[in-house]
Design a protein around this nucleic acid. Sequence first.
DNA 1: TAATAACTTGAACGATCGTTCAAGACTAGA
DNA 2: TCTAGTCTTGAACGATCGTTCAAGTTATTA
Lengths: 199, 199
Amino acid sequence: MGKNSKFDREEVIDKAINLYWNSGFHGTSMRTLQNEIDMRPGSIYATFGSKEGLFKEALIRYTQLGREQLTECRRKADSPVNALKSFMIERVKLAQKASPTCMCLLVKSVAELTDNNAELLAQARESLKTMESGFEELIIAAQAAGEIDKTKDSQNLARHIQIYFSGIRSYIRVYGDTVPIAEMFDDLFQHHPFTYSSH
Amino acid sequence: MGKNSKFDREEVIDKAINLYWNSGFHGTSMRTLQNEIDMRPGSIYATFGSKEGLFKEALIRYTQLGREQLTECRRKADSPVNALKSFMIERVKLAQKASPTCMCLLVKSVAELTDNNAELLAQARESLKTMESGFEELIIAAQAAGEIDKTKDSQNLARHIQIYFSGIRSYIRVYGDTVPIAEMFDDLFQHHPFTYSSH
DNA sequence: TAATAACTTGAACGATCGTTCAAGACTAGA
DNA sequence: TCTAGTCTTGAACGATCGTTCAAGTTATTA
C-alpha cells in the first residue's frame, strides 16, 4: 500500500553524475541538482539522505558503469591489450561529452575532497582501486594470450596504466584537443614494460 | 605620506597557497583565510581585490617557487636527469608537508575549476605549461650532456614527464605512502624513451 | 469508499558565503 | 604639531548554502 516513486532512480543518479562531473562536489549546489534532476528537496533528502549520500551513489554507479564498459570493450576487441586501448579512447570520448574537463570523476574527487568528507574520499579511493583491478584482469589475460611478457608483475603493469591514464587525462585538461590523444595511448603500450622488445 | 602595510605580502600569499592547496578554491572560505593570514576582510580586498584575485596570485607564486626549486635542483645535482629526479622527490615531500593530498596545486586547480572562474583556469593551465617547459630545458641539457638520446624530441619527453609526474601524484593520493615512491620515479627514467637501451 | 501508508511539494530555516564601507588608527610631509 | 593621505578594522549586507518539515497528493488495501 502507499504510493510509488515517480522518478527513475538510475536516471536521476546519472544526471547527478554529470553535474558532479562538470562542477565537482562543492561546485554543484543542491539548487542546481534540484532543477536538473527535477526533484524537490524533500524527495531528494528522503531518497538519498544528503548531498553526500547522493554523491556517494553517483561515485558507485560511475564505477559500475566503468567496469561494465571495460567488460564490453573486452567482448568487442580482438585482444586484451586492444581492449584496454579502446577502453581508454572511448572513456576519454565519453568524458569529453559528459564533462568538459575530460578527467576521471574519481580522480577529480580524490583531488577535491578532504577529510571533511571522509566517507566520500574513501569511496573514491575504493572505486579507483576497483578500476585498477579491472585493468589487472585484462593484463593477466594478455599475459595468458602471450601478448605481454608473463614474467612481468601484473599488478605493477596495472599501476603503470592507472598512472599514465590519469596523467594523460589531466594533460588533456590543460592542452585540450590540440594534443594527439590516440598516439599517446599507443605510446603507452609500445614502451617497456609492456613490450618484449624493450631492455 | 600615508601609512605602510604592516603585513608581508609574500608571507600572506604563502599562507594562502597552503590553504588553497589543502582544501581547493571552493573549499577554502574567506573566513578561514582571514583567520589564517590574520587580515581583516577590508585589507584583503583592498590588497587582492577578491577571492579570485588572491587565488591567482597564489597560483603565480606557487609556479614561481616551483621554477626556483627546479633551478636549485639543477644547481645541486651532478646531472640534468638526476636534477629532474631529485626535483620530483623533493616536490612530493614538500607537497606531503604542505597538503595531505600530495597532489600538485595546479593539477588540483584545473581539475576543480570551471568556466565560472575562467581567468583562474587559464592561469593554472599557463602555469602547468611553464613547469613543463622547465622540464624540457633540463631534458635538452641532458641531451647535450649525452645523458638522453639527442634524436628524441625534447618536447615529447617533457610531456612524458609531465604526464607521469601528475599521474604518480594522483596515485599517491589514492594509496598513500604504501606505494614505493622513489622506485616509481626511477622507473620513469629507466624506461624508453629516456634510455638508449630500449627498443 | 473510507482509511492508511508512501511519496511529493515548496516555503522557510539557520548557517555561511563573498563582499562592502564608514569609521578609526597610523604615518609621513608641511 | 597639524594635516592629508593610506591602511586597518569589523559590523553588516544580500545572496546562497544544505537542509527540514508540515501540508498536500496519490496509490493501495480493507
